[in-house]
């Protein structure tokens, strides 16, 4: 049982790092606002996975409680972010980040 658990921890570790890396890469190189938003969520979920993994390893419950809060807040964040992106789409008919360059200098 214990052996199974440790190997599982190893795999969640790998998956969460990979997820975070994917999210970070997408956040930095993608130019579509919706995809960038999805990459933000991907990173948050990767961190959630790390938190659950640590909570499993240390046997404390605080990490899992934090995960619940992070998921809730992430939902609120998506609501706000989608509202902003939708509004920009309504004005400019595009969600390409490179087209929003009025403010600069």
């Amino acid at each position: 049982m214990m052996e199974k658990l440790t190997s599982m921890v190893y795999w969640t570790h790998f998956v969460s790092v990979a997820l975070f890396g994917l999210g970070l890469l997408g956040f930095l190189i993608r130019r579509n606002a919706l995809v960038v938003l999805m990459c933000l969520e991907l990173m948050l979920n990767a961190v959630n996975l790390i938190l659950v993994e640590i909570a499993m390893k240390t046997g404390t419950s605080e990490g899992i409680i934090l995960v619940v809060f992070v998921i809730t807040v992430a939902a609120a964040e998506v609501a706000v972010g989608l509202g902003i992106i939708l509004n920009l789409y309504r004005i400019k008919k595009t969600v390409d980040l490179t087209s929003f360059r009025i403010l600069s200098g």
Binding site: V80, G81, I84, I85, L88, K92, F100
Partner: peptide
């Protein structure tokens, strides 16, 4: 458009 762009960048 400027306010929305500002909001997007801040977000």
């Amino acid at each position: 458009i400027r306010a929305s762009e500002a909001a997007l960048k801040y977000f």
